[in-house]
């Protein structure tokens, strides 16, 4: 009997250790990949630091890298387009995503939720090229004619157009993640609130959402990261004209589009080539920062409450 116990104890210890080792390897691998991607970008962008005027790169308002007389590598038009498109898509996606989350987790009948949640998650799997195609052919025309002759977008393909479809991509991610967060709020907390004579609404707003806030913030940040990094939809739907404008109804060319469009045509080992890698680096830093903010927000709230 005692012997048997010792065997199982030893086996369990072995098991614990091997799980630990495997997880360490896997997570180290993730960090290595991240480092490799960063290093690769840095390595390829490095020549740009000397060959391209860095002041001009960060503050220049004109992106015209193929100009035969004087190529201009001003990043601002691209950065602004990225900001405009991401901000508008977030503005559209956050209220819809939160609304859908609250509906699914607090209002919908369990039977409806059982159908809706997987349906929403399937939405996340629609290839972005399909959405881009739809944006290009159907939606752009719809907005173009919507208020005509009173009003028309400045350009047929514009940043708003792309942002709407980015929002469509963001909502499922957000709903799926934040619904998980709301669902993992223990039922005992809801019951505590209801037993104090709170209505369901008061309970949702004052107990469930605050308790799920770290998860909700993370969901929002991750979906914005998705929007910042998405390429296909913006290439197809936003018009791809690198002009500096905050007007969402003008064409624009975010950082991702620029890399995707120009990388195929640029001659290797030219300043233009290196600058495209530097753009990649900028994008990398932005998404990295977003994830960090998400992480920070999660930790801040969880520390305060647990």
């Amino acid at each position: 009997m005692a012997y048997k116990q010792r065997v199982t104890a030893r086996r369990r210890k072995l098991y614990d250790q091997s799980v630990f080792v495997i997880l360490t390897i896997v997570s180290t691998f993730a960090i290595l990949v991240l480092g490799a991607v960063g290093g690769f970008l840095l390595l390829n962008a490095y020549p740009a630091f000397s060959q391209v005027d860095q002041w001009q790169f960060f503050t220049g308002t004109v992106w015209d890298p193929t100009n035969p007389i004087e190529p201009l590598y001003g990043m601002l038009p691209l950065l602004v387009a990225t900001l405009v498109v991401s901000a508008i898509s977030a503005l559209i996606a956050i209220p819809i995503g939160l609304g859908a989350t609250i509906y699914l987790s607090e209002i919908a009948h369990p039977r409806i939720r059982k159908i809706m949640k997987p349906a929403v998650e399937v939405l996340a799997g629609i290839p972005s090229v399909v959405l881009g195609f739809f944006a290009l052919t159907v939606f752009a025309k719809f907005v173009w004619d919507l208020f005509y002759p009173a009003w028309r977008p400045d350009d047929y393909l514009n940043m708003f157009n792309g942002a709407v479809f980015l929002a469509i991509m963001m909502v499922p991610i957000m709903v799926s993640l934040s619904e998980d967060a709301m669902n993992s709020v223990p039922r005992s907390l809801k019951e505590a609130s209801l037993a104090l004579g709170m209505t369901r609404w008061e309970t949702t707003w004052k107990v469930v959402i605050p308790a799920a806030r770290p998860g909700i913030v993370a969901a929002i940040m991750l979906s914005i990261g998705r929007a910042v990094g998405e390429t296909m939809v913006v290439v197809m739907a936003t018009g791809s004209a690198p002009q500096l404008t905050w007007n969402p109804f003008s064409s624009g060319q975010p950082i991702t589009s620029t890399i995707a469009i120009e990388m195929g045509e640029v001659a290797a080992n030219t300043p233009h080539y290196y600058v495209l890698f530097e753009l990649g680096l900028v994008l990398f830093v932005i998404t990295f920062a977003l994830n960090y903010v998400a992480d920070w927000a999660m930790r801040k709230y969880s520390e305060r409450y647990q």
């Binding site: 005992s188 907390l189 505590a192 104090l196 004579g197 107990v207 605050p210 308790a211």
Partner: peptide
């Protein structure tokens, strides 16, 4: 809602809100 205000309930497992001690009481 009025019923539950007049008839309070304490549960099997302590279930304070993830808030401060003060807020736990002041909430309702």
């Amino acid at each position: 809602v009025e019923v539950r205000k007049r008839i309070g309930m304490v549960f099997q497992k302590p279930n304070p809100f993830p808030k401060s001690i003060f807020e736990n009481i002041a909430y309702a």
